[in-house]
């Protein structure tokens, strides 16, 4: 990844965090879980950003895909002892299949249909998880076995922390590579101008579906990891409220940017945890922030942080450019 100056220190800090928590010693397990959970949420934010920020398609039911992934992993683990990698992969795959069924009719016509259809999907997954208790445990939820990964026991908070961290790094690299190759450029082209994209040979409708399916796969895989991390899944973890949280992460972080999605996930997760005791508070703050970001800081956190740096590099480039910009 470029900008090693930022990413390398961030990864190092994340890598030594358990050690620091160990030294401080207080409530180590709790904080490890909070940060691990954040890593998983950040994967979902990245997946939603791939769809919304990169391809310009809205999803209001991303927690539905997380739920499909989490329940798939939990059921496979509880019944057949499938491990973390298998659970995450199966969860992602099932979420991808679900998204294919939704995406094919919903992306064909108007953009907002996908928003409404995903909203309905999120609610439906919730309802079905509650109702189909023979499979999902209903409102009692479902417990998983101690997590293993490729035969290794990763059932301690520290090990799960590293699993979640590595998953986030892998997801970041995958999405980053995708956006820098042919398909990722097609996503952006479809967002910017459908007509020009088609004229360049990009099949608009199917490209939208592919973006949606990719996004759902990642969200489902994150759901699978989440199930192992929490050791337990229940419907209330995946309601419409958490879909809105993911949505807020992407918008506040700045659409169309992976660091933006991760930064947005930090802010939103922090607000959610800090304001958890007063009902309505986090919703009001995040809603207000979204409105303010859209009106006054289009580009979100990413643009805000980059503004200073960008000014410098633009000047540098202009100075080096042999073509006068005003020619």
């Amino acid at each position: 990844m470029p900008r090693y100056a930022v990413t390398v220190p961030v990864v190092i800090i994340a890598a030594v965090l358990p050690l620091v928590l160990q030294l401080i010693g207080e409530r180590q397990v709790y904080w490890l879980f909070v940060v691990s959970e954040f890593f998983v949420f950040a994967i979902v934010a990245i997946s939603l950003d791939l769809l919304m920020g990169r391809t310009g398609q809205i999803s209001l039911g991303h927690s539905g895909f997380v739920a499909v992934g989490a329940y798939t992993a939990a059921i496979l683990n509880a019944r057949f002892g499938v491990d973390l990698l298998g659970g995450a992969f199966a969860g992602g795959s099932l979420a991808a299949i679900a998204s294919l069924f939704l995406g094919v009719p919903a992306t064909r016509l108007r953009g907002h249909y996908l928003g409404i259809v995903t909203l309905g999907f999120g609610i439906a997954v919730d309802q079905i998880a509650l109702k189909w208790d023979a499979l999902t445990g209903g409102d009692q939820g479902l417990h998983l076995h101690r997590p293993t990964l490729l035969g290794l026991d990763v059932g301690t908070p520290v090990l799960m922390y590293y699993v979640a961290l590595i998953a986030l790094i892998v997801a970041t690299l995958l999405v980053w590579s995708l956006t820098r190759t042919r398909l990722g450029r097609a996503f952006a082209a479809v967002k910017d101008s459908e007509i020009a994209a088609a004229a360049m040979g990009v099949p608009v409708a199917s490209t939208k579906v592919v973006a949606f399916v990719c996004s759902a796969f990642l969200a489902g895989a994150a759901g699978g990891i989440y199930a192992f991390l929490a050791g337990f899944v229940a419907p209330e973890d995946f309601g419409i409220d958490s879909s809105l949280l993911f949505f807020a992460m992407v918008v506040i972080g700045g659409m169309g940017s992976i660091p933006g999605a991760i930064g947005g996930a930090i802010i939103v997760d922090a607000i959610k945890n800090a304001a958890a005791t007063v009902s309505g508070l986090s919703l009001a703050i995040l809603g207000g922030m979204i409105v303010l970001v859209v009106l006054f800081f289009p580009g979100g956190l990413k643009a805000l942080l980059r503004r200073h740096a960008a000014k410098r590099t633009t000047l540098d480039r202009t100075r080096n450019a042999t073509v006068p910009l005003d020619a």
């Binding site: 995958l174 999405v175 590579s177 995708l178 820098r180 190759t181 042919r182 398909l183 990722g184 450029r185 097609a186 082209a189 360049m200 040979g201 990009v202 592919v210 990719c214």
Partner: peptide
């Protein structure tokens, strides 16, 4: 775009 073939494997 139409001359190239990279699809999802671009992520890898």
């Amino acid at each position: 775009h139409s001359e190239m073939t990279t699809g999802l494997e671009g992520a890898l």
